[in-house]
């Protein structure tokens, strides 16, 4: 099929960006979205132009590297046909010949742009460094079955842990809030007995870091949940807010 791609090009964060149009004449419906961009890049290279920079690695929906806003939607999911995929897992048969597809980067203050469609998500790493871990040194663990964990808790923890740290929630949110990510990351630990000791300090520290990184506030628009390729539930945000209140009542302040 034939497609027009309208792609965001920007040399780096110090320069102005703009949308640029490109034509592709022969896109296979069986190719993945990123393979379609590969095609375009091959064409650009052969024509002596610079290919489009975009993040990707595993191409199977698990590393969280790919990060494109397609026609205004993070990961380009067509919410009726296909639910919960990353853009690397979306295939061209979901598009129609003749269409114009607009490609943009994640846009958020917390994610400075590096080049074209690539942004810097280092803020997510720093949120984890603020407290998204259980402090247990190598070698000091008891036998794994010494601490039974109800299957239900383990399952909820797993639901939260499924987050791939892609940042689509931030990109989709009108306020560029990182609440879904942050709450999922602490949620996976806070639902396990191992995570209880540091639970409230963890909440306070991670939320503080999230705010410091310039992410916006949550106004319950739920766009994040709709864009999330791993179907992370808003319930984790509610839990995080409850824990934050408890922490405040306990008088716990940030240590980051």
């Amino acid at each position: 099929m034939k497609l027009t791609l309208r792609v965001w090009r920007q040399k780096n964060s110090n320069t102005q960006g703009k949308l640029e149009d490109h034509q592709l004449d022969d896109v296979s419906p069986d190719s993945s979205f990123l393979e379609m961009i590969d095609d375009l890049n091959e064409k650009l290279t052969n024509e002596g132009n610079e290919p489009i920079a975009f993040d990707h690695d595993c191409r199977e929906g698990i590393c969280g590297m790919c990060s494109l806003v397609v026609n205004g939607v993070a990961h380009g999911q067509d919410r009726e046909l296909i639910k919960a995929v990353t853009i690397c897992q979306l295939h061209m048969r979901n598009f129609k010949g003749g269409e114009t597809i607009v490609l943009e980067p994640w846009r958020a203050e917390g994610f400075p742009l590096l080049k074209d469609l690539i942004v810097d998500r280092g803020a997510f790493d720093r949120i984890i460094q603020a407290g998204g871990f259980i402090s247990v040194g190598t070698g000091s663990a008891p036998d794994a079955n010494a601490l039974p964990i109800p299957k239900k808790n383990a399952d909820i923890s797993m639901d939260a842990a499924a987050c791939i740290g892609c940042g689509a929630c931030v990109a989709a949110c009108p306020n560029a809030s990182a609440m879904l990510f942050t709450s999922a990351k602490m949620g996976s630990l806070n639902h396990l007995p191992q995570g209880q000791t540091e639970r409230y300090q963890r909440v306070v520290n991670m939320v503080t870091q999230m705010d410091n990184e310039g992410f916006g506030a949550c106004t319950n628009m739920a766009e994040c949940e709709a864009a999330c390729p791993k179907e992370i539930s808003l319930d984790f945000i509610a839990q995080m807010n409850r824990d934050l209140i408890t922490a405040t009542l306990k008088g716990i302040g940030p240590t980051v």
């Binding site: 663990a141 036998d143 794994a144 601490l147 923890s157 842990a161 630990l189 396990l192 191992q194």
Partner: peptide, 22 residues
């Protein structure tokens, strides 16, 4: 065997049986 102990302690959500064991 130490690996499984270590990972469980870190909070890796391994699949569990109803009794809570791995």
């Amino acid at each position: 065997n130490n690996i499984i102990d270590q990972c469980a302690a870190q909070g890796v959500p391994f699949a569990r049986e109803y009794g809570g064991a791995l």
